[in-house]
Design a protein around this nucleic acid. Structure first.
Length: 435
DNA sequence: TATCCACAGGAAATCAGGGTGT
DNA sequence: ACACCCTGATTTCCTGTGGATA
């Protein structure tokens, strides 16, 4: 929920709704632009559809496909293609239709929950509680259920964003267990399909898992601008009223999304947001200007959501960085400074504990990979090895975000002791001298 | 050339909070 | 009531390290 629009001195909701209803209606079916929408056709994924179809086709003859992996960056149609093929496969399955169970590892992220999710999906209710039982008990229950409920048939287990669980020992273990499920089953067979955004995720995969899962894989490449244009066009026809979208708008959305890695999700988001902006400003059609605004807003929204969704301690780490960078004097921010300032801030808020260096270091890394800050490892010789941190986002934007976070808004004018005393770990001149 | 700074970051352990079946 | 389980956040313990300095 964003409430940018209701910050007026007095907002009249009745007028607003009346005006809204009388305004132009641009959308016909907005869902067609959502990431979860599975279209009837998937332009420019013929090769990929064919590969997945041929890997899984033996299911039609009662054979068991071997496990496989799918690689490709976000918005290249991996999940949509799998869903598309699964529906087609069901159409052609004469006797018993195979089961398809989708597991999104960004949500269902622990071994216990993966097992519970599979079990609960098959029985159709929450029979396994969210926590409390031993894992092996659930595993045995699941084996029994598969043999009983999916008798003489096949169950596809699709693990989306599988790379999110392979960085831990437990994650690897559950994958190993899942790949060997068939050895413990009598009547039912399973096929594992792993979907990953990261190409190099195999690196921290258990070699035993690689051998049964990773030998075969399908790669989805990004769409180029023309292909994105085709996708947008076919979706726009479903989503918008006639005449709302012109070709230039589509080309612009496609070009902007192609600049990333050919991300269709991004292209669709852009188009949807542009439509919303046009509607909000009572325009009858979408213009290039709306698209550019949409891009800005999406970027902003993304940052705002991310920061607001961070745990308080992470927000405090970011606040520390903000406070150090706020004071006019150019200075180098290093991890040690952040640790000190965070300690001060944590002591100012009741019920918040200070963290160890180790933990702060993890938060710094997280902020770096979210591209909110840049943290560059630097060796300063006799002055040690540290990370040099820079704030990547606009300070004003950060202020407005933090003004809405109760525990933090009062800290925004706090002057950290190391600023007060003008303590500098590594002086600017030293830093410059060392390059 | 040995030393030493100021951390980085991996692995395992711990803790609190929420749960289980008996 | 009890022993035991899972999870997520964090701590503890630890080894590693690039390069200016003595």
């Amino acid at each position: 929920m964003t409430n940018k629009d209701d910050n007026y001195e007095s907002f009249n909701i009745d007028d607003f709704y009346k005006k809204y209803l009388n305004g132009p209606q641009l959308f016909k079916k907005r869902e067609a632009l959502e990431p979860s929408f599975v279209p009837h056709e998937l332009p420019h994924r013929d090769k990929e559809i064919e590969q997945i179809a041929s890997r899984t086709a033996c299911a039609l003859r009662g054979d068991v496909p071997s496990h496989f992996l799918i690689y490709g960056k976000t918005g290249t149609g991996k999940t949509a293609t799998v869903r598309f093929v699964s529906e087609k496969l069901a159409q052609y399955s004469e006797k018993i239709k195979p089961w398809w169970i989708y597991i999104n590892c960004s949500i269902v992220s622990t071994p216990y929950r993966i097992l519970a999710h599979i079990y609960n999906t098959i029985v159709g209710s929450e029979q396994i509680p969210p926590t409390g039982l031993p894992k092996d008990v659930i595993f045995k229950k699941l084996l029994g259920l598969l043999d009983y409920k999916i008798k003489n048939s096949l169950c596809f287990l699709v693990l989306d964003e599988i790379d999110l669980i392979t960085d831990t020992k437990q994650g690897n273990e559950i994958l190993y267990d899942l790949t060997r499920l068939n050895e413990n089953l009598d009547n039912c067979r399973t096929c594992l399909i792993g979907i990953s955004n990261k190409l190099k995720f195999k690196e921290n995969l258990d070699p035993r898992v690689v051998s049964s899962l990773g030998n075969e894989h399908i790669t989805f490449s990004g769409y180029n601008a023309k292909e994105l244009g085709d996708i947008l066009e076919s979706r726009a026809k479903i989503a918008f009223q006639e005449g709302v979208i012109n070709e230039g708008v589509i080309r612009l959305c496609a070009a902007l999304a192609a600049e990333e890695h050919g991300d269709a999700r991004k292209a669709l988001q852009l188009l949807r947001k542009a439509g919303e902006i046009a509607e909000r400003s009572h325009n009858k059609y979408v213009s290039n200007e709306h698209v550019r605004k949409a891009q800005e807003e999406l970027e902003r929204d993304h940052i705002i959501d991310y920061i607001k969704g961070m745990p308080l301690q992470a927000q405090l780490v970011l606040t520390s960085i903000y406070l150090i960078s706020k004071f006019p004097k150019e200075r180098i921010i290093v991890s040690g400074d952040i640790y000190e300032v965070h300690k001060e801030l944590a002591n100012l808020i009741p019920g918040v504990s200070t963290l160890t260096r180790r933990r702060i270091s993890d938060y710094i890394n997280e902020l770096h990979s979210a591209e909110i800050i840049t943290a560059e490892k630097k060796s300063l010789g006799y002055y040690g090895r540290t990370k040099v941190i820079k704030l990547n986002i606009d300070k004003k934007l950060l202020e407005t975000i933090f003004m809405e976070v109760n525990k933090i808004k009062d800290l925004l004018n706090y002057k950290p002791i190391l600023i007060q005393k003008n303590k500098v770990r590594i002086s600017d001149s030293t830093f410059r001298r060392l390059g």
